[in-house]
Design a protein around this nucleic acid. Structure first.
Lengths: 336, 336
DNA sequence: TTGTAAGCGTTATCAT
DNA sequence: ATGATAACGCTTACAA
């Protein structure tokens, strides 16, 4: 690929490169007339400013990096779309990287983006481990940073989260109201705040209704995880009356296994999902699920990042907690 | 952010910057001893090579850009994962951009990536329009380029596609075998080869069985599209006996509307989806769908790109056609 | 208003 | 085996 440069234009027009540069950056003095002449010639020659060169000299990129753990569920793509909408409006380009639920790959991704001088980073953790010290380092170096959904506990940074406590509480209470007692709790890795909050919600709902809590399992957020848990439960012949699943994918995986093994849902086992996917309303039985405002989450994260980008230096970390909704459907309601 | 540079190390160690550079690029002569010394110091100082500077001088980035039309369906994320797997092995970083089904945004994305000196591009079209001349230009400039899934018709470039003709044919024939006559055909925009091929398959299956073809509709690939089409059909009181939908999302959207309006599936209307999603087996009724090898598609695209990257200059465009499978489920089979 | 020139962090070509 | 130095394409003082 041959690129047309600022020099080519300068030569062609017998002006200095700095003049050409000025033509493209209105902040400098330049005679409107020459400016027009340059812009015209430039577009004739098919010139495009080289962002690489600009990054090098300006030490910034107008790029924002977004790192997500997985692509399997529609959750993260939706968040990305929300963030993109805001960032595009402010002339930032968005670079997306996915960590495949690996902490190591996540660090690699983050470093790649930092090396490429992104102006800021929006991150959802693949897990908690030796990635955190690196993020500490970034915040110390004043790299604008926003975590969302799967956020770290002890890092002073802006965060956008869902009110997991509240909705795990409500979802659990809903199951209790339906008369279910032995409720299995499933969530992601135990070191994610998200999991801790849900667990508290689950516990507190039991406490409120003076019911002993059921079994608790930590797993991933994929359908595979749901399948495996259900298979284990069946092979151990240890079937709970209801399940609060880590997310819809997990719930759907479980439903399939249970149905295949002849269990009736919700009669034999009731199931509630989390982070509602579009499929919740379409599977059989339709799935009760906690709906999260994914798009809004992306927008909020982008907003928080923009704030940091604007007031360089002074920045008070904020945490935005988003609200949700419990969509009650067939999988958790026994008609009597 | 303050970055440690090669200069800092050079100063610290009283060597030339070129020596430090050499230490990081084994291809040059350097005494193993000094090399060790430099590497050690560098890691102590937390040095990381600046890829921006390297891009500028080498005019390449070791980055590959992937552009996809949408994030809503799991199809593209899966393709990306396949491509990433291959590209990571060859030390390429993958930059993902999504065009939100907009041709303009797609061009913008492509230009951004080109400006950032990606070494190659993997693209699925959001549509056919004034993006094509730009891609022509890129191929003329020898930019390594691979199209997949939604590919342009008249551009000399490597492509990875699904055998849409064959599987649309089989899917249609399957419906015919089940005794359905009035089969509605739905696919994406008519200028996509993909749509043309499916349409030919659909037509030829009818021809083979000497049955007149049904109505044909072009739309998008989202659930919304399915919903709208179904609503239109109902309001026009023009209900086909069977549907070959654009994809699973579309099919699922239709199913919901039809079910809500009291139609029985497949008794009143049979439905077949395309590009199977994980949900096909979980919705009610379970959805018959043409399964495409998404992951393989990503891998194949990455392979084709790597070939171009390796034999710079000479490059014969290839088209890889991938095979699929028809997963027959409840939505298209009337038990008699 | 415009030109000159230094510099961003590398690599790569010359010397030495 | 190492050092000096000119690029890469741009921005931005500073000078004119």
């Amino acid at each position: 690929m041959k690129y047309v440069t600022i020099k080519d234009i300068a030569k062609e027009l017998n002006v200095a490169v700095s003049t050409v540069s000025r033509a493209f950056n209105d902040k400098y003095d330049i005679k409107p007339e020459t400016r027009e002449r340059i812009l015209k010639k430039a577009s004739e020659m098919g010139y495009r400013p080289n962002p690489i060169a600009r990054k090098l000299v300006q030490q910034r990129s107008y790029n924002i990096g977004i790192i997500i753990p997985e692509f399997e569920n529609s959750f993260f793509p939706q968040v990305i779309m929300g963030a993109q909408e805001i960032l595009y409006q402010h002339n930032y380009q968005v670079l997306i990287m996915q960590s495949n639920e690996s902490i190591d790959l996540e660090i690699r991704n983050a470093k790649t983006l930092v090396d490429n001088m992104v102006d800021g980073l929006i991150i959802s953790l693949s897990g908690v481990g030796n990635n955190l010290p690196y993020y500490e380092e970034l915040t110390e170096k004043k790299m604008p940073l926003v975590f969302f959904n799967r956020v770290p506990e002890n890092i002073e940074a802006s965060k956008v989260v869902f009110d997991d406590y509240k909705w795990a509480f409500f979802a659990t209470e809903h199951l209790i109201h339906q008369g279910f007692k032995d409720i299995l709790f499933i969530s992601g890795a135990d070191d994610l705040i998200l999991s801790k909050n849900r667990r508290r919600g689950y516990d507190d709902a039991h406490k409120k209704h003076r019911i002993p809590t059921g079994k608790k399992i930590n797993c991933g957020f994929s359908m595979k995880d749901g399948v495996q848990i259900a298979e284990n439960l069946i092979s151990q012949n240890n079937i709970p009356k209801a399940v609060l699943a880590a997310n819809d994918a997990c719930a759907i995986g479980m439903i399939r296994v249970f149905k295949d093994s002849g269990f009736k849902i919700p009669e034999d086992i009731a199931i509630v999902g989390f982070s509602e996917t579009k499929m919740a309303a379409h599977i059989s039985p339709t799935l009760t699920s906690v709906e999260q405002p994914t798009y809004e989450m992306g927008k909020a994260a982008a907003q928080l990042l923009l704030e940091q980008l604007q007031n360089k230096g002074i920045h008070i970390p904020q945490t935005i907690v988003l609200n949700g909704r419990l969509n009650v459907r067939e999988s958790s309601v026994v008609l009597s």
